[in-house]
């Protein structure tokens, strides 16, 4: 509990320091809104031309887009320390400073950054979710609400785990943001659409390596009453756990990378 308290206090402080420049903060938040709005526009235009993909109608596609958008940017809000700060921390030696404190490195990294501007992207995602729910006329039940909440929760851990790829590469002094982006941002762009529209290799990639399909698409398809692969309802509660599994694997690799750092120095 002490760690959670530390995290909350760090967040409060970060927001306090960001609000020292309110105009800049507002402008950037607005920019985020426009950017994610552009992404949604692309989906709207595609649906305008093609109407549907496989069994997925317009509402279903908006729902998938919204689910990804909300989950991804939720992770960006809280995972900023990993994506934004960590690589430069390794390069300028700030990582040593973290090691000199009696706390876990990952805790401290996550405490070191937040990106509240992304709230604008989440707003766009929410709009898309509502659009999807309306058009597809989803019959909401407490079970479905729970399933969606669970999906978003485990998506958070999945994406946080993927963000750690770059951190791990950086420690091994591999400097390629673009390579790390392939899985994170590439995965986001691809899995805005249900994974069954992709050919087998990509489908396997999004099920096994970066399991967006298990964490998002399986529960979402059940919520839409069009279960992927015809799987029963309970699977929608089980498959999202894959997100936690991936996070755990990445966390282990991260610890291994730190061990490597401690034996080689910077």
């Amino acid at each position: 509990m002490n760690t959670l308290r530390l995290y909350c206090r760090s967040m409060a402080m970060l927001i306090k320091s960001q609000l020292q420049y309110p105009l800049s903060f507002l402008m950037q938040t607005l920019a985020q809104l426009v950017m994610e709005g552009g992404e949604l526009l692309a989906v709207i235009l595609l649906i305008d031309r093609f109407d549907r993909v496989n069994q997925w109608g317009p509402g279903d596609l908006y729902f998938f887009f919204g689910l990804m958008s909300v989950s991804f940017y939720l992770t960006e809000i809280f995972g900023r320390g990993l994506t934004g700060n960590f690589p430069s921390m390794v390069r300028n030696g700030q990582l040593d400073t973290l090691m000199l404190r009696p706390r876990g490195i990952l805790t401290q990294v996550l405490c070191s950054g937040a990106d509240p501007r992304r709230i604008a992207c989440i707003a766009v995602g929410t709009v898309s979710l509502i659009m999807g729910s309306r058009i597809s006329a989803i019959a909401w039940s407490p079970l479905k609400v729970l399933m969606m909440a669970e999906s978003i929760f485990f998506s958070f851990w999945l994406i946080l785990g993927l963000f750690m790829v770059e951190a791990i590469l950086t420690i091994h002094s591999v400097k390629s943001i673009e390579l790390a982006n392939t899985l994170t941002y590439g995965g986001r762009s691809a899995c805005e659409y249900p994974s069954d529209i992709y050919p087998r290799p990509l489908r396997i990639l999004f099920t096994v390596v970066a399991p967006f399909a298990l964490v998002m698409h399986v529960p979402a398809s059940i919520i839409l009453d069009k279960p992927l692969f015809g799987w029963p309802v309970w699977t929608g509660f089980v498959t999202p756990l894959a997100g936690l599994v991936l996070f755990f694997i990445m966390y282990m690799l991260f610890r291994k990378a730190l061990k490597f750092y401690r034996s080689t120095g910077s």
Partner: peptide, 10 residues
Amino acid sequence: DSYSLLKDIY
């Protein structure tokens, strides 16, 4: 504020 956070960290 920095010190108070360090207090929590340590």
